[in-house]
Design a protein around this nucleic acid. Structure first.
Lengths: 243, 243
DNA sequence: CGAATAGTGTCTATAAGACATTATACT
DNA sequence: AGTATAATGTCTTATAGACACTATTCG
């Protein structure tokens, strides 16, 4: 169907980042206010073009994470979400974006990056139920990133990526509650996380002081895959009382 | 970091397809023997460049599915696997591939496509345990596609995409067994699929004749998400008797 | 001692795993 | 009748969900 002289059309490649973290027990995503032409002034996911033809896409994601969010990718969870390539997604031309999901523990205040006039952690609940408009197809990407995070919380140890090096059971429970949007029973949560081999490793005799009884500390265990899984309480998607 | 005149480097975009089907109760993938330069003569996933700057990536996957595998994408399950963009993955230059996973029911014999000197369904077991070399990073892509299929069999109705319009419980069980590589107990399988609301819809009084008692027929039900999930018997990954 | 938070047990319902028998068709 | 395959029940074990009390620290 193609002849000998046909050459495939070149495209430009960007990476976009869905960076999630917990701030005061609620889920936040890092957004930037665009400082340049397409969608200038609108909120968008941090990201940018690959730097040169030899830059690996994953490396580009790490670089953007550092440049735009001032986060060290070597200690962060970072995984690919997918490629977004609708032909009309960017007015500048054919630009395909490879999106990454990053999970950050702490709360380093964001810095405005190169192309951003502002960067800030926004509650995802506000972005969705409120009416924050996102540039390009970034709403879709954020949505997909959230669903991936929600899903991976069930059967992987991803939740620990939201926590620091060590954490308490209550902190871990807050992660599940914030990402899933459900309150969990602390007694059942306690029983379930303890029952998964390799999920959590107790840390010495140290305890974290609180207003009440000090809490035991844990760190992420060796197991990446949770069996049995931590299942989400209710529906995953819409209708299920039917049939 | 970039100055005003800097322009991002263009890349070329391909789509590659992991097409899975069942042939005589064992899992097969469609592979082509490359007929042109890079890795000529080696086995590879079907795929090709996007046709022009206005072609949507998903449409390109559908097109390749038709051109290279003679399959009608409108009735097939087709979903994105991810983007593969290691800088050295293709000797022709910077070529990023967006991989798709396709699930086909029937057994239409493949046709050699444009750039392929041969196309054939190969048992995936042979590709992995045997030593079929795959071109580019296609082994990785096939691996990822397989794992996605295995995983989605657990909590979605993807298994029905391997079957025709209507199917028997035994046929559906063969899908799970072939993809997971485990034999399942027919009695427990029967109980579990029946217990998931919306998974299967019985089809009239029709039965499929066999050598023994004729089997009831079902079609895929309305529910895409399986609750409770059909969980894989053993380990998902390596070590779990520890701790 | 009272307030605050952590840590744990028990009972019940639902789902999983192992296992054997009955049903319907064909020859 | 014999063979082949489908359909289904029961018992036991594991996990999930609901729920309430005890433990440790601080002021």
């Amino acid at each position: 169907m193609s002849n000998e002289t046909w050459r495939p059309p070149p495209v430009l490649l960007t990476v976009d980042l869905v960076i999630l973290t917990l701030r005061s027990s609620s889920l936040h995503a890092l957004l930037i206010k665009r400082g340049i032409y397409p969608h200038k002034g609108e909120w968008a996911l941090p990201g940018g073009f690959i730097a040169d033809s030899n830059e690996d896409i994953f490396d580009a994601a790490r670089r953007e994470l550092r440049e735009e969010a001032n986060l060290d990718a070597t200690v962060l969870h970072l995984e690919q979400l997918g490629a977004y390539g609708r032909p009309d997604r960017d007015p500048r031309g054919r630009i395909v974006s490879v999106a990454y999901l990053a999970i950050a523990p702490g709360l380093p205040e964001p810095e405005a990056g190169t192309d951003a006039s502002a960067a800030s952690w926004r509650p995802v609940e506000e972005v969705f139920s409120g009416h924050v408009r996102l540039a390009f197809d970034h709403r879709q990407i954020l949505d997909d990133g959230l669903e991936l995070a929600r899903s991976k919380l069930e059967h992987t140890s991803l939740a620990t990526a939201f926590c620091g090096e060590t954490f308490t059971l209550t902190e871990l429970q807050r992660v599940y509650e914030a990402v899933w949007g459900f309150e969990l029973d602390p007694r059942n949560f306690y029983r379930k996380v303890q029952a998964v081999p390799g999920f959590l490793t107790p840390v010495g005799p140290d305890r974290r002081p609180t207003k009440g009884r000090p809490a035991r500390l844990f760190r992420a265990g060796p197991e990446q895959v949770l069996r049995p899984p931590m299942m989400r309480p209710v529906p995953r998607t819409g209708n299920e009382k039917e049939r």
